[in-house]
Every structure is written in structure tokens, then in C-alpha cells.
């Protein structure tokens, strides 16, 4: 039927992540890295603290990425990236992009003082946080990015997490840095566009990527992209960007948001929730979505 049709390619063809990496089946973080490197290209230096990606990359002297990587201590992603940038400036290299690539634990909890310090100094690098909503690498421990109601090994079913997820975009927006964006692996074109935009801006740029984790969320590996898409369509993780801490833009307007149960029922970590608890989560999501709409002037 379609012998003459041309292949539709909506992303750059260049592949800087090779096969053979050590990620679990259906890992969302690998997709995030793949799209980020497609946008940034070969002239990139990565600073990776302890997170899933420090394992996925592979053991020394092998690496599944074709860019230089600096593995640093857990809390130092932002300060290492500042140092790498300063070193490049000393040798007069202006075109190389420095990217700190940390998980949610290394951003929301452990790395936040380094990140806040770097944002205050307005250091020139991209900080990408791929958010899988717990410390997945060490065995699914609760982090401050874990959503309300979720099961983790440190918040077992009877004592599931009762606290809200930290509003990291709000925290970063308060630093008035030049560019902040949220991105989802289910919308790769949008993600590539945001990374390309971030590459051309100077100053601290923060990108929050939503990366489902089948192992930790107790979901099926083939639902990874579907879950990321549902998170956007239910309004749980809206796609928007903030420029200079004041100009908020919503990238994807959802006319009719799906109910949050569609998103929750695919994941084993929410299996214990009763209807009244789901209603509470729905109210929470509605509230957050309205807040963001208001900030975007809609």
C-alpha cells in the first residue's frame, strides 16, 4: 500500500545513545536522554550525579553515550556543571553546551542547595531533571518528588505517602533564571524544541522531564509512553515554559482533561487507593492545573 511513501521522521536522525545500555525494559529515562542528545548534538558535556543514568551508561571503560560524561557526587550536579563551564571558558570554548543530568532525588532533595546556588549565580548551563518520582536506582525509596498516595518501599501500603509533591518549577521560577520548561517523553518533538531553545539561551536553564519507570511504578513496560501521555492529558503534568521567571506559556492546551483514575489504574503503586482518596487526588490535580492556567494568563 505504501511502497512509495517516504518515512516520516520528526526528530533529528543523529543517534548519540547506543544500544546495549543497562536500563530496564521500557525505561523512560533513556528516552529522555535520547531526545535531549538529539537536540543538543555532539558538542555537549554531561555531568551526571548518582542516579539511574550513572548505571545505565555502563561500566568503565565503556559508555553508551557518545559525549563526554563527568560522574560526580550525588549533591554536586549543579556545582560540577558550573566548574566544567568555568574550565571551558578558561580555554575559550564558547560553543560546547554543559548539561547537568540528574534524577529527581538529586534535584528535589539532595542537589537542591547546589542547584539553588548555581541558579543564584546564573551559571551558564542546562540543568535537566528527569523525574521518575522516587529513588529508583537504590530501590524505590520515597523522595520529595513522589506524588501523594503513592506506594514506595519506605512508604508501604498502610503508610502511603501523605505529603504533596514539591513544586520544583515554582522554586526555580522564584530564582528568575532565563529559561524553565517542563517536557514529557510522550511528546518528543516538543522536548527537542525546548532543548534546542535552551541551547541558544545563556544563563541557568532548567528542564523538568517526566520519565515513567515501569520497575518502580509497578506498571507494564509497554505502557511507559502511554503513562507519560496520560499524565499530560489528565493535567497531572502540564507542558509549559517560564522565561525570566515572569513570562509563563502553556505549550499544550487540553480541552477536555481525562479523569485521573485512567492514569492511576495503570500503576501498581496506586492500587491501594480508595475512591475518596482518588477524589482527593483529582481535586489536587484540578487545583494545580488551575493555578498554572492562571499564571499563564488563561
Amino acid at each position: 500500500m505504501s511502497k512509495e511513501r517516504k518515512m516520516t521522521i520528526t526528530l533529528p536522525r543523529e543517534e548519540l545513545m547506543s544500544s546495549g545500555h543497562l536500563a530496564c525494559q521500557g525505561c523512560g529515562a533513556t528516552l529522555a536522554m535520547r531526545y535531549a542528545l538529539k537536540a543538543l548534538g555532539q558538542k555537549t558535556i554531561l555531568c551526571i550525579p548518582a542516579c539511574c543514568w550513572s548505571v545505565i551508561d555502563g561500566p568503565f571503560p565503556h559508555s553508551s553515550l557518545d559525549v563526554p560524561i563527568y560522574h560526580c557526587a550525588f549533591e554536586t550536579a549543579a556545582s560540577s556543571a558550573s566548574g566544567v563551564r568555568a574550565g571551558l571558558d578558561m580555554v575559550g570554548d564558547k560553543e560546547t553546551t554543559v548539561m547537568a543530568w540528574a534524577g529527581d532525588g538529586g534535584t528535589f532533595d539532595i542537589g537542591i542547595q547546589a542547584l539553588s546556588g548555581a541558579a543564584e549565580r546564573n551559571e551558564d548551563f542546562i540543568y535537566a531533571c528527569y523525574d521518575n518520582e522516587a529513588y529508583m536506582n537504590t530501590g524505590i525509596q520515597r523522595s520529595s518528588a513522589t506524588p501523594i498516595g503513592a506506594w514506595t518501599t519506605t512508604t508501604p501500603v498502610k503508610h502511603y505517602k501523605k505529603e504533596r509533591k514539591k513544586d520544583i518549577i515554582g522554586i526555580m521560577a522564584a530564582h528568575d533564571i532565563p529559561y524553565i520548561a517542563t517536557a514529557s517523553i510522550a511528546y518528543p518533538e516538543d522536548m527537542v524544541k525546548k532543548f534546542k531553545k535552551a541551547k541558544d539561551i545563556h544563563g541557568t536553564r532548567f528542564i523538568h522531564i517526566y520519565a515513567p519507570c515501569p520497575t518502580g511504578w509497578k506498571s507494564r513496560p509497554d505502557d511507559t509512553v502511554k503513562l507519560a501521555r496520560l499524565a499530560v492529558q489528565t493535567g497531572y503534568f502540564p507542558l509549559y515554559e517560564v522565561e525570566n521567571g515572569e513570562k509563563w506559556t502553556l505549550n499544550l492546551k487540553i480541552k477536555e482533561r481525562k479523569p485521573i483514575t485512567e492514569y492511576l489504574k495503570l500503576q501498581g503503586r496506586f492500587r491501594h487507593l480508595k475512591q475518596d482518596e482518588i477524589d482527593l487526588i483529582q481535586a489536587e490535580v484540578d487545583n494545580n492545573y488551575q493555578k498554572i492556567l492562571k499564571k499563564c494568563g488563561l
Binding site: G20, F60, P61, H62, I69
Partner: peptide, 20 residues
């Protein structure tokens, strides 16, 4: 034989993950 600084020399393609 080891390099003086930590650097990657090869890709992970030796790891045939198809066996998983």
C-alpha cells in the same frame, strides 16, 4: 594499559541485551 584519567574508550555495543 589503563588511561591516566577516567575516560570511556568503547561503546556498550558489546553488551547484547537481546538475551533479556
Amino acid at each position: 594499559e589503563m588511561p591516566l584519567v577516567a575516560m570511556s574508550l568503547g561503546s556498550m555495543l558489546y553488551n547484547k541485551t537481546g538475551a533479556w
